[in-house]
C-alpha cells in the first residue's frame, strides 16, 4: 500500500503532469490518492492554483466523490458491497459480521492500522454475490467464514 506520508514536491510533480489535460481535476485527484493513499488537505490550494480554480471549488470537487479519502487508509483496504444483489444473498449480515470482527465501522481503520473497511455500491460481481474487493482483488461467493479467512490472512 502507498505510504501515508506526502510531500509537496511529489504532489506538485503529479499536478504538473496532468494539469494540461481536458478536465484535469479527477485525473489529478486519482493520481494523488494513488501516490499517497488519500488526498491530503494541503494539496487543495496547489490544485486550485494549477487549474485556476478557487480553493472552495476544489474542496467541493474532492468532497463530492466518495472515492477520495481525507486521511491515510490502513495497510489493506476491504470494500464490501452493500447493494441489492449482494443484499439478496445475505450481504447485510455479512457486513455486520465484518464490522464486529474488525471492530471498525464504515470508512474506519482497525486499531492496529492493518485494514480499512469501506462500503461499495456494486462491483459488478452480482452473479457471484455477496462480493467484495480486497486491495483491488475481486472476491465473490463470500460467507462469514470465507470473509474471516480473507481478512485474517491480509492482516497477518
Amino acid at each position: 500500500m502507498p505510504s501515508p506520508s506526502w510531500s509537496k514536491e511529489r504532489a506538485e510533480a503529479i499536478i504538473e503532469a496532468h494539469r494540461r489535460r481536458e478536465g484535469a481535476a479527477l485525473p489529478i485527484l486519482h493520481a494523488l490518492q494513488e501516490a499517497f493513499g488519500y488526498v491530503p488537505e494541503d494539496t487543495v490550494p496547489l490544485i486550485a492554483e494549477a487549474l485556476n480554480l478557487t480553493r472552495a471549488e476544489v474542496h467541493g470537487i474532492v468532497t463530492f466523490y466518495h472515492d477520495f479519502r481525507h486521511a491515510p487508509p490502513g495497510r489493506h483496504v476491504l470494500k464490501l458491497c452493500r447493494a441489492e444483489a449482494c443484499q439478496s444473498m445475505g450481504g447485510d449480515a455479512l457486513a455486520e459480521a465484518a464490522q464486529a470482527r474488525l471492530q471498525a465501522g464504515w470508512g474506519e481503520t482497525t486499531g492496529d492500522g492493518s485494514l480499512t473497511l469501506e462500503p461499495v455500491y456494486c462491483l459488478g460481481l452480482c452473479a457471484c454475490a455477496p462480493a467484495a474487493m480486497l486491495d483491488g482483488k475481486p472476491v465473490g461467493r463470500l460467507d462469514a467464514k470465507r470473509l474471516a479467512a480473507l481478512v485474517d490472512g491480509a492482516r497477518r
Binding site: E22, G23, L26, L29, H66
Partner: peptide
C-alpha cells in the same frame, strides 16, 4: 479512458459530462 470516483449519479449523462469536465458531478 477516464475513471470515475464512486458517484452513482455520474451514470446520469449530464452529471457524467460535468464530471469529465473536472467538476462535481
Amino acid at each position: 479512458i477516464r475513471v470515475g470516483a464512486g458517484a452513482y449519479v455520474c451514470g446520469e449523462e449530464t452529471a457524467l459530462l460535468d464530471s469529465l469536465e473536472g467538476k462535481r458531478g
